[in-house]
């Protein structure tokens, strides 16, 4: 009998926002959301947590990226991009982008199968019309 799998409840994307397609393997200790390992973070890595958040750090809790970003007091300049923390940096920057710019976001699930995974990756030809920039 097939085991029932739970999908990760986090999202990916900046413009076309999609539900994460990975299977959930962990439950966030704070919000109880099911998340995959890509979207799960160790609370003991949080730098300068506030008093109310220190308990998660002390208990070595596992948090979803949303809760981790909420607690993490690091400035974006202090985050190493060649690491898993790159997604924390991205999430912080997306929050800033949404706060500072009038933005366009399309939620993939609102459009049925329109944004289903496509397979055009091999058709991408970057040599296309470089002269467009000359005008």
């Amino acid at each position: 009998m097939e085991e029932k799998t739970t999908r990760c409840e986090e999202f990916t994307g900046l413009f076309v926002v999609r539900n994460c397609e990975n299977n959930a393997t962990i439950v966030c200790d704070k919000c109880k959301k099911n998340v995959c390992s890509t979207h799960a973070f160790k609370a003991n890595q949080i730098v300068n947590p506030g008093k109310e958040h220190a308990v998660y750090k002390k208990n070595n809790s596992i948090l979803c990226i949303s809760c981790f970003v909420e607690f993490d007091a690091r400035l974006t300049n202090d985050i190493e991009l060649y690491s898993k923390d790159r997604s924390v940096w991205r999430r912080k920057m997306i929050h800033r982008f949404h706060a500072e710019y009038p933005y366009m976001v399309f939620l993939a699930e609102d459009y049925g199968s329109l944004f289903d995974r496509s397979s055009t990756v091999f058709l991408h030809d970057d040599s296309d019309e470089g002269s467009y920039f000359d005008s």
Partner: peptide, 8 residues
């Protein structure tokens, strides 16, 4: 989570 905080 393995590579969390890793640096080159």
């Amino acid at each position: 989570m393995d590579r969390q905080g890793n640096e080159l």
